[in-house]
Design a protein around this nucleic acid. Structure first.
Lengths: 133, 133
DNA sequence: CTGGATCCCCGTAGATACTG
DNA sequence: CAGTATCTACGGGGATCCAG
């Protein structure tokens, strides 16, 4: 076995993880990130640390259960840091980690795309509805 | 305070789309895009038009139902073009529209991020599991 | 009072079988 | 080949309860 060049190693890395293989860890990761609450939570935390209640009110429509569940998953994946301050009442703050910030950049692109292209999408839906039943 | 023109007001309205409002169209759009199959389908179509069966086999683990449903939604939103060729047996091709390609760029960034950062995430999960139950 | 766990109900994803 | 139809099972939403 000859020593690998950096390029070969990079190629090898790329082929180790493939989202199109259903058993690949990158696939399950992509599925977790492709969650409607994940992008909202990460974008909400973009402005800095927030308390649980702040997140809950800034992300309209989220249930306690899903917000807690999403935050726990993000914490376990090292994307969010959870800090408990034992005051009365208890205070829990959430903030992005370095890894979380790098993901937030990508997801804010998706958020931006959605907010920008709403009109085109709505027009397309009307055309589709008119053409079909 | 200067008077707004109608055009300015319309422009202002356009920029008011906010994903954090649960009733905002951009929010429901973001939720549709934040679907685990959407990113996979769009990335699969990045290489060019594909038949239904090709998509089904390239995206391992997708059910006929969800693939059809996802493709129909993407078609209705103007992101994917569906072409039926009345051969025997019938041939159905799917390809990205211009709008779909612009979204694919964003989603492939997410795919790339997932494939790149799998190791960090797995390590974080182990640390979390070790620290907690 | 904040943050979160638990229970129950319902919608929807998913597997299977069938059709133009 | 490219879908529809049907059934079941899992996961999200809401109410309720719990700890600090």
């Amino acid at each position: 076995m000859v020593t690998m060049t950096a390029a070969q190693r990079r190629e090898d890395e790329r082929e180790r993880f493939n989202v199109f293989v259903s058993t690949c860890p990158s696939r399950t990761l992509l599925e977790r990130l492709s969650d409607k609450w994940v992008s909202l939570v990460l974008c909400a935390l973009d402005g800095g640390p927030q308390r649980y209640g702040e997140l809950r009110s800034s992300i309209a429509g989220v249930s306690q259960k899903m917000l807690t569940q999403t935050l726990r998953n993000l914490e376990a994946d090292g994307l969010v840091l959870r800090t408990v301050t034992p005051e009365v009442p208890v205070r829990v703050d959430y903030e992005l980690t370095e890894l979380g910030r790098s993901l937030q950049v990508v997801l804010s692109g998706l958020k931006q795309w959605a907010e920008t292209n709403v009109p085109e999408i709505l027009e397309a839906r009307e055309r589709y509805a008119a053409a079909n039943g």
